[in-house]
Design a protein around this nucleic acid. Structure first.
Length: 450
DNA sequence: AAAAAAT
C-alpha cells in the first residue's frame, strides 16, 4: 500500500493546489509533503473517499485540510452574504483539544482565502460558538456532543455538507460516540465525500467505514501500530516513590523541558503534578475532570515552554501536536497496548528525535509484554541511578518531616478500606541497598528479561 | 480498570 516510489522530491506545488493555499503553506515553511500528504492530497482533490491509517505526527491534518480548502475554493461561493456561508466541510474529532488544534490548522491555511471556519466543543460557553455559526462558516470543526447540541438549537444546518472528516475514528468509537456519529451522518447529504482516519482498522472501524464511505481509497503510511523509528524507547523497573524520584531525576539531571508524563488516572495525574511541583519541577496536569479553561491554560503554558512537565491522562495521548517534546514518560503503563503507541507518538514528531521512557512496577510488566507484542519489538530494560534519598524528600509514610501539615499527609496515604487494612505497608520490594557510591541502583533486582 | 464527551 505504501507508495514512496516517486523519483523526484515532490513539492506542494505539484498538487495544483489553489495559489492562496499554496501561499499559506509556504508561509509555514513546509516545502516537502509528508508521505501521507503526497498520497492523500491528490486523492482528496479528485473527490474520492479515503480510509486512512496514519500515525499522528505524520502531517495528517494538513493532508486533509489542504485539499478540502482547495475543493471549497474550486467551487467558491462568491456571495458576501453570511447566510450564503453554509457549512460545506465538517471535521469531527474525539477530544476538545484536538478539535481546537485542527481548527488552528484550518485557520492558518485558509488565511488568504475568503473561506471561514469555526470550532465547537463542550466545556466552554456556547454563546460565542452560536454567534460564529450564525455568522456562517464553510468549515466546521467539532466534537460530536456539542455539535448535536447546536443542531438541536438550530444554530447550524448540516444539509450542505459535502465533505465529512472523521479524525481519530477509532478513538471516537472507543469513547462511545458511535450513536452520535450515526445521528450526525444522517443529517448530512448522502452524496458527499467522506474521509476516515484511524490508527487501527478494527472490525468496528471497518463496519463504520462500510456504512459511511463509498469505495474508499485506502491509504496507509508506516506499518500500523509501528512506533516512529525516530523515538528511542527504554523501560525502567521501578515502583512506588522511586517512580516519582525518577521523573524528578530525569528532568533535573538532563535539564529537560516540555516532558509529557502519562498517568492512568485523573486523581493520580493531579497528585503527581502537585508532588513534582513540591520537588521543584515546574509541572501542571491536564485531565477530563479539570475545567476546560484549566485544560487550555495548562496546554498553553506547556506549548509556551513554561513547564518542565505536563502530567496527563490519555486525554492528551492522541493527536496533540506540540513541537519539540523531547521525551514522553509513561509513569503508569497503559492498560491498552495501543495507547502506548499513541502516547509515545507525542514525541519524535516531524522527524525530530524523541525518547520514550516507561516506568513499570512488577505488576505492570504484563502490560509491557503486551506492548512489545503489539509493536513487534523488544523495549530494552535499563536501570537508573537515583540520587540518594534525602530525609526531607522522602515521602514514605511514617517518615514525613514534622514540619509537614497533617492535611498534606492525607494526600500521600493511599485509601485502604478498614476491613482489609494493614497489608500495604513497608518498602517496595526490589530496591537495592545504598552502594558505596551513595547512588541507589534501583530496579536491577527486578531483572529485565522474560 | 480507566479515560473521554452535551448538560
Amino acid at each position: 500500500m505504501t507508495d514512496t516510489t516517486s523519483t523526484d522530491t515532490p513539492t506542494f506545488s505539484d498538487f495544483g493546489l489553489h495559489p492562496s493555499i499554496l501561499q499559506a503553506v509556504a508561509a509555514t515553511g513546509y516545502t516537502t509533503p509528508t508521505p501521507i500528504q503526497s498520497q492523500a492530497i491528490p486523492v482528496v482533490i479528485d473527490g474520492r473517499d479515503v480510509m486512512g491509517a496514519a500515525q499522528t505526527g505524520t502531517g495528517k491534518t494538513a493532508a486533509f485540510t489542504l485539499p478540502i480548502l482547495h475543493r471549497l475554493m474550486a467551487s467558491a461561493n462568491t456571495s458576501a452574504s453570511p447566510a450564503r456561508h453554509p457549512v460545506r466541510a465538517l471535521i469531527l474529532t474525539p477530544t476538545r483539544e484536538l478539535a481546537d488544534q485542527v481548527a488552528d490548522n484550518v485557520a492558518k491555511y485558509r488565511q488568504g482565502t475568503p473561506l471561514r471556519s469555526a470550532v465547537v466543543f463542550g466545556g466552554v460557553d456556547i454563546g460565542p460558538q452560536r454567534d460564529a455559526l450564525r455568522r456562517g462558516c464553510e468549515v466546521l470543526i467539532a466534537t460530536p456532543g456539542r455539535l448535536l447540541d447546536h443542531v438541536e438549537q438550530r444554530n447550524v444546518n448540516l444539509g450542505q455538507v459535502g465533505i465529512l472528516v472523521l479524525d481519530e475514528a477509532d478513538r471516537m468509537l472507543d469513547m462511545g460516540f458511535l450513536p452520535d456519529l450515526e445521528r450526525i451522518v444522517r443529517l448530512l447529504p448522502a452524496k458527499r465525500q467522506t474521509l476516515l482516519f484511524s490508527a487501527t482498522f478494527s472490525s468496528e472501524i471497518r463496519k463504520l467505514a462500510r456504512a459511511s464511505l463509498n469505495t474508499p481509497v485506502e491509504i496507509e503510511v508506516a506499518a500500523r501500530n509501528a512506533t516512529a523509528d525516530t523515538v528511542s524507547q527504554i523501560a525502567y523497573p521501578l515502583s512506588g516513590d522511586d517512580k516519582r524520584a525518577a521523573v524528578v531525576h530525569l528532568v533535573k539531571s538532563r535539564g529537560l523541558n516540555q516532558v509529557i508524563v502519562f498517568s492512568n488516572t485523573k486523581i493520580g495525574t493531579s497528585r503527581l503534578a502537585r508532588q513534582l511541583e513540591r520537588d521543584g519541577v515546574k509541572a501542571e496536569s491536564i485531565h477530563g475532570d479539570k475545567s476546560q479553561l484549566d485544560r487550555m491554560k495548562a496546554l498553553e503554558a506547556f506549548k509556551a515552554g513554561e513547564l518542565e512537565v505536563l502530567v496527563a491522562t490519555d486525554v492528551a495521548a492522541r493527536g496533540l501536536d506540540v513541537a519539540g517534546v523531547p521525551c514522553v514518560i509513561n509513569y503508569d503503563l497503559p492498560y491498552n497496548a495501543e495507547d502506548y503507541v499513541h502516547r509515545i507518538g507525542r514525541t519524535g514528531r516531524a522527524g525530530a528525535k524523541g525518547e520514550a521512557i516507561a516506568l513499570f512496577a512488577p505488576d505492570e510488566e504484563r502490560f509491557l509484554l503486551d506492548i512489545e507484542k503489539l509493536i513487534k519489538a523488544k523495549i530494552p530494560r535499563g536501570s537508573l541511578s537515583l540520587p540518594p534519598r534525602s530525609r526531607f524528600s522522602d515521602r514514605t509514610r511514617g517518615s514525613m518531616p514534622s514540619s509537614r501539615k497533617p492535611v498534606d499527609d492525607f494526600f500521600y496515604r493511599p485509601y485502604v478500606p478498614s476491613a482489609s487494612a494493614s497489608q500495604k505497608g513497608g518498602e517496595p520490594s526490589g530496591k537495592a541497598a545504598s552502594s558505596a557510591t551513595g547512588k541507589r541502583s534501583v530496579g536491577v533486582l527486578l531483572g529485565g528479561g522474560r
